[in-house]
Design a protein around this nucleic acid. Sequence first.
RNA 1: GUGGGCGUAGCUCAGCUGGUAGAGCACCCGGUUGUGGUCCGGGAUGUCGCGGGUUCGAGCCCCGUCGCUCACCCCA
Length: 416
Amino acid sequence: MKKEKIQAPKGVSEYVPPASREFEWVREKLITPARMAGYSLMELPTFEDTQLFTRGVGESTDVVSKEMYTFEDRGGRSITLRPEGTAGVMRAVIEHNLDRGQLPVKVWYSGAFFRAERPQAGRYRQFYQVGIEAIGLDDPAIDAEVIAIADQGFKSLGLKRFRLEITSLGDSASRAAHHIELDKYISNLDLDEATSQRAKINPLRLFDDKRDEIKKLMSKAPLLMDYLSQESMTHFAEVQSHLKALKISFAINPYMVRGLDYYTGTTFEFIHEDLGAQSGIGGGGRYDGLMEQLGGQALSGIGFGLGVDRALLAARAEEVVPVETFTSQLFIIPLGAQAKSEALVIASQLRGHGHVVEIAFGERALKGAMKAADKSGAKFVVVLGDSELSSGSVELKEMSSGDSKSVRITSLHEAL
RNA sequence: GUGGGCGUAGCUCAGCUGGUAGAGCACCCGGUUGUGGUCCGGGAUGUCGCGGGUUCGAGCCCCGUCGCUCACCCCA
């Protein structure tokens, strides 16, 4: 009797061959620029004390208030699957006293994150992000470098149809002054219930509304950009001049809103043009009060999170995903039991020399095995039968040309 | 959480006004004994997402449910 099939939980993204190779490729490309800029790996738990997020990300945010996977563990502790990466990094930096050493602390991470949202194109309940954090520097140059690292990651994938938007959320004094004026402005608008409710939680959200009538209403609203303190303005101007020096094009978007409470100052977003509603492929910014909020020193920080799933969708949309990112060099077809045993030994030795080697297993006929070799994409194939075993040499056949030459088994690793 | 579309072989899909399933691709085997990609021949495969209901009879109709998908919302 056939048992009922068990399916993956709703809305998760998973990658199986052959698509998993594309995923690996994207993730590696996004990580590389961070490594090359001297960032070190931070490998953290996927679940944390719930308080880390309520306190770090902010209870008023949608992410915390309605999108977290929270449960009680067997010891009665409240645990949450991480919905984002920065809070966890801060917690670990504080816990391991990394902030007591040389600054800045520069780390990168990569892994799965969880949000209980309604799935749609590019939005999953378990998704993958690559991120970096640079902690303990106020220098605008580090802001530019962080942005440049993300930009480099996307460019190295071959992406072209994306843009960078930046803004400054200023310091807390700037925001407080603006908040009062914005509230005053919004209170005079005629809004529906849901919208005014959103405005109450975060008035900046209205700037992000997609409806034309709201856009129109908000077109004369006071902008945070106009309330920036002298310091914030200077900082932001320097970030921009660094970006220009780096030849990274950007647009200032004074309407940009980020959904996490900790952002301050420089804030940015990478948006892809071919992705539909979920077009943000990466984003980040400063979070100058976060560490203190979590019980650490009052150190500033800046970082980003890049969506691996979305970057892959973007790469597919632009058709820049390499066709074959994995091919073996040699495919060995053994004929007979003794040859099979010998094939295992030869393959093992060649792999020791750094060659990618596959063997035809099972009892397939030679023709079938050749087909398998062809499909594996292997560059070379050898047939290993009785005559080869006794002579000690094989015909090394190049699949693309069909040419072959006689090679001693013992010197195969040089011939490859 | 709200709304729209969809769910038939591994994949892409067809299936007329209800009469118990098909194509292409992929896969496997073979085309005389140990060499692939083309060509030819043959073959396996579906509880038609799941559960109810209407009917003599349902892949086609109705209800529910699960999932996928797109948008709102939110964001990576």
